[in-house]
Simulated assay, not measured.
Amino acid sequence: MWVSLIIKNPGDNKTPEPGCAKNWWYNFLYINNFLDMATGKECMVWTWYLANDMQFFVISVPIIWITFRYFLVGMITQVVLLLASFGATIGLAIHYNLQPTMLSAG
């Protein structure tokens, strides 16, 4: 019962999303962006970015600490992560045949 109160506002008369009954805790732990969005198991789909942002925040704390404590190691770590990000983006673009464009897909 209380799960439905989290996802509904007082004026909402819609039924809750089907994934919220079992998978609400993914949102609570900020790991809901790891769920497969095509299966309908997600709860509050629009909150994927909150999870993404929180994960980057948690990862940034040790990286910043390493950079202040061991400057060269921290800078190398940051460059490696930056290149890995570029590589992942390029790899996904090639795999899914995505073309660069100024227009949004939606």
Rank of each mutant, 00 (worst) to 15 (best):
W46D: 12
A93I: 02
A51M: 04
D12K: 07
E42G: 04
W46T: 04
T39P: 06
V73W: 03
Y26S: 04
N13A: 09
V61W: 05
I76C: 10
G87M: 10
D12F: 02
M54W: 07
Y30W: 13
C20I: 04
V73G: 00
N9Q: 13
L5P: 01
W25H: 10
T101R: 09
F56D: 04
Y70D: 09
P100I: 12
L98K: 14
S104G: 11
I66A: 04
L98F: 15
N23C: 00
N9A: 08
K22A: 12
T39W: 03
E17L: 05
I76H: 00
L29S: 11
I90R: 04
I90L: 14
G19K: 02
V79M: 05
A93C: 11
F86N: 10
W2V: 07
I66Q: 02
M37E: 14
V3G: 02
N27I: 13
M1R: 08
D53K: 14
V73R: 12
A51E: 05
P18T: 01
I63Q: 09
W25Q: 04
K22E: 06
V73L: 09
T39D: 12
K14H: 12
F56C: 02
L98D: 11
W65V: 14
F68G: 05
A88H: 06
M1Y: 06
T39F: 09
A51S: 15
E17M: 07
F57T: 15
M102G: 15
N97H: 15
G40D: 01
L92C: 08
G87C: 10
K22N: 13
